[in-house]
Nucleic acid binder design. Sequence first.
DNA 1: ATAATTTAGGTAACCGGTTATCTAAACCGG
DNA 2: CCGGTTTAGATAACCGGTTACCTAAATTAT
Lengths: 336, 336
Amino acid sequence: MKVTINDIAKLANVSKTTVSKVINNKAEGVGEETRKKILKIIEELNYQPSAIARGLVTKRTHSIGLIIPDIANPFFPQLARGVEDIAIKNGYNVFLCNSDNDVEKEEGYIKAFIDKSVDGMILTSSTSISDSHYQSLKEKKIPFILVDRYIEGIEGGAGVFSDNKEGAYKAVNYLLEHGHEKIAFISGPLSITTALHRLNGYQAAHYDKGIEIDYDLVQEGNYHFKSGFEFIEQLITAKKKFSAVFAANDMIAIGVVKALKKHNIKIPDDVEVIGFDDIDTATLVEPALSTVAQPIYDMGALGAAMLIKMIEGKEIDQKNIYLKSELVLRETTRRE
Amino acid sequence: MKVTINDIAKLANVSKTTVSKVINNKAEGVGEETRKKILKIIEELNYQPSAIARGLVTKRTHSIGLIIPDIANPFFPQLARGVEDIAIKNGYNVFLCNSDNDVEKEEGYIKAFIDKSVDGMILTSSTSISDSHYQSLKEKKIPFILVDRYIEGIEGGAGVFSDNKEGAYKAVNYLLEHGHEKIAFISGPLSITTALHRLNGYQAAHYDKGIEIDYDLVQEGNYHFKSGFEFIEQLITAKKKFSAVFAANDMIAIGVVKALKKHNIKIPDDVEVIGFDDIDTATLVEPALSTVAQPIYDMGALGAAMLIKMIEGKEIDQKNIYLKSELVLRETTRRE
DNA sequence: ATAATTTAGGTAACCGGTTATCTAAACCGG
DNA sequence: CCGGTTTAGATAACCGGTTACCTAAATTAT
């Protein structure tokens, strides 16, 4: 049988109150000798208090829930690792769930997390508008943090995002300043805020330079390799002219590069390409991808840190934090 | 305040026993009308029973723990996704922890999982020998599954692995049959069983062909890009002759390819390269990596399925399962 | 019509901790 | 030497469910 606090108490000839005090390092009310005796017995029996039992009364489980679209998508492991690290450092464990961008799955996970009494949750949301299923988070007053993807009109939580619009602006502006006027753009799914904001950045950069966008060169993609590859093939067979491509993420950009290479178009000489995210693979492909690097790990880590602050009742400095992204130029853009 | 079973009972004018029966779909002992009335109140109050409270008495949390070295390592997301999917499908949630191959961290996580009363755990172990910290798993009779990495002399658990030796044998044998006699090999850390077994496969293939191994061409690496890149550079500057490279995983292989390209050695014409794992990036790099594909996702999924069987007291068919790996030839080996 | 059985539902103990409150002995100053 | 204050430790309620067992009414069998 599992050894419980009662067993320890019995063996030590004390009440479980006293054992409890020892376990929790409460100094008052326990003599040095008794403490030592209890500690010894705990050691001998390899006793570990049950977090479940404790949680029932303290209302704290030291668990947090993390919902992301898909851990197998190369963007998210880094984010997950960020939250993991900070969580562990603060004595929390994290439940991981993959929503596949499916709102119903997400809803199910939120429910599961609630009945498991997580102390808080971190969400990369599957919708961009405040949906009914976030309601219960408010109702039950569960602290939560949005990471990566913003949700319009949600209250009660806080968030960590990167400046997607700015990032996209930087990339497109770079291209524009280097004389490109026909810049193809493959976005992410526009129902996702990051995708929308990157599109906005693309547009803003054009607007500021007074250059009109040819919307035949703009396509809604799905953040996967294929949507980059296919759109570029389409453009090529349609003989559409373009001299640069901005891809809403690196996987798309890699698809773009593959398509371009397949058609013997020289990168960066004939066409320059810029991606977004700076996933690990970006440096592994050839030519190495120029991209807008976001601090993915930091987004997770900061999110976790904020969440824990909220859980522990401390003030957080800002409700929403926007992390800076940075244009890193590698081999899919020209040297100078 | 949070609504509890008592609130429901009071509002429905029944005892909490009755409510409990309704919640758990126990047919006996509850009339149709009472059931409906209770259900309605539950709905109205958006009541969710506390898994914590339930867990305290049922001794089941429907949570499982997963310990892997590093989710940011491209091998593990697929594995994690496999366990996730199966876990969720069966009503379990999974705690994720990154051990960084650090035995002490791993030990800490095992303890944390125990006091959170997980129903079972899945481990990709950081040691190859049965260490003291697995003791408590046995003691407390917690079901566990080893995935990917075997541990010598551990009892009480089961495991899912791939046939690392076979896989390596196939790759090296292929190379040998194509006339290579000088095949460089960069292994993983030999304290990890997968690495050891792949080395054994490399050796066995040579042995069977009666070809002596030149151990100057063999190097212990660490499963990262760098160890492949650096060793090849070393061989080249030392003017060591070799006509093929077998890398113990794809990241090493990618490093190898980069080094080879840097020195203008043609792949596969001058040197053929084979990796191991078949991570997603393997198809993205150029030339696309020939590699020994393991069913990573399946390993996780099967592991989870077995674990859940064990948790639920069902028999498992085999204690240890070895999944077949498969040589997939892409562009770092010659056509025919 | 009566006994036996089924059915709906209630009572209370229990899971393994925490915590507010209480007791009794030790201590302490004047 | 006495009343007041610390201090070590105990008692018991409580957290939110589950479950073994009980009761009383309804149903069925005889």
